[in-house]
Amino acid sequence: MRTEYIRACPLWRNEAPRYDCVFVNTNPELEGMQGFDVARVLCFFSFTVRGTTFPCTVIRWFDTVGDSADEDTGLWIVRPGFNPNRSPNISIIHVDSIYRAAHLIPVYGARFISRDLKFHHSYDSFRFYYVNKYADHHAFEIAF
Results as ranks from 00 to 15, higher is better:
I93D: 08
P88V: 08
A69C: 11
F62Y: 15
H103P: 00
R86F: 13
V107R: 05
R79H: 05
V78L: 08
H94N: 12
H94V: 04
R79C: 06
P84D: 13
V107G: 04
R79M: 07
S97T: 05
S91K: 09
G66I: 07
V58R: 15
D67W: 03
T57M: 14
D72C: 11
G109V: 02
S91Y: 09
G81M: 09
D72H: 07
A101D: 01
F112V: 04
R60P: 01
P84F: 06
W76L: 14
I105L: 11
D96K: 10
T64S: 13
R111Y: 03
I59Y: 03
D63T: 09
I90W: 08
G66P: 05
Y99L: 01
D96H: 08
L104H: 06
V107K: 02
W61G: 06
G81C: 10
F112Y: 06
G74E: 08
A110R: 02
N89C: 12
V78G: 07
A102L: 03
D96N: 11
T57D: 02
A110G: 02
I59G: 05
T64I: 10
D96V: 08
G74P: 03
S91D: 15
R100V: 00
E71F: 08
I98F: 02
S87Y: 08
S68C: 12
V107Y: 00
N85T: 10
V65D: 01
V95F: 03
D72A: 15
I93A: 06
S87V: 06
T73A: 13
A101Y: 00
R60K: 15
P88R: 11
L104N: 03
T64V: 11
S68R: 13
V107Q: 01
V107H: 01
F82D: 04
F112N: 10
N85E: 14
